[in-house]
């Protein structure tokens, strides 16, 4: 993934830790007959981080280039909605909107749009890969996320 910052990585760790804590509690047997092993990280966890990083990139670019805000703000909101839905599927806490979690946006609006487009295309590919192998109950959400990112590329042209 392009431009994942230390802060994003840290937040990923927090989400995973929350998931692990839940698994430990629910796996605990009150009669002490031995608990279940800690759950493996959910394969969707990286997609939560990716959605939050995409949201932050759009928010930062909108702040740096106010004329672009009308285009970028709805896209940032969509990414945050994706992160919340994905976190819900995983059973993790709903993530909080990120502050600056991206490299600083380009000084030139056109260059900022190119950067965002590239990131949306990468995000579309990772969501496509996740959708291909997902169980039915996750595939529909992932498919909508793929489609949303494709529409974002269209709007960023």
């Amino acid at each position: 993934m392009i431009g994942r910052s230390r802060r994003t990585v840290l937040r990923a760790g927090t989400l995973l830790a929350l998931g692990g804590a839940t698994a430990t509690l629910t796996g605990c047997d009150p009669l002490g007959r031995g608990g279940q092993p800690a759950a493996a990280p959910d394969p969707l966890a990286p997609l939560v981080d990716e959605a939050l990083a995409l949201a932050a990139a759009h928010t930062d670019a909108a702040a740096a280039h106010p004329p672009l805000a009308d285009r970028l703000t709805p896209i940032a909101e969509a990414h945050r909605a994706h992160a919340a839905e994905l976190a819900g599927l995983i059973g993790a806490a709903t993530p909080t909107p990120s502050a600056s979690a991206s490299p600083s946006p380009a000084g030139d609006p056109a260059a900022a749009l190119v950067t965002l487009r590239t990131r949306e295309q990468a995000g579309r590919q990772s969501a496509t890969a996740a959708c291909a192998g997902a169980p039915a109950d996750r595939a529909a959400l992932l498919a909508s996320i793929v489609a949303a990112r494709a529409t974002h590329v269209e709007v960023l042209r």
Binding site: D70, P74, I75, E77, A78, A81, H82, E85, L141, A143, S144, I145, A147, A148, T151, H152, E154, V155
Partner: peptide
């Protein structure tokens, strides 16, 4: 999304297409 843009509908995207 393209039709929304042609119609001047904003925002031209939805969070969960379909």
């Amino acid at each position: 999304t393209r039709w929304r843009r042609a119609a001047g509908i904003t925002p031209s995207t939805v969070a969960f297409p379909g």
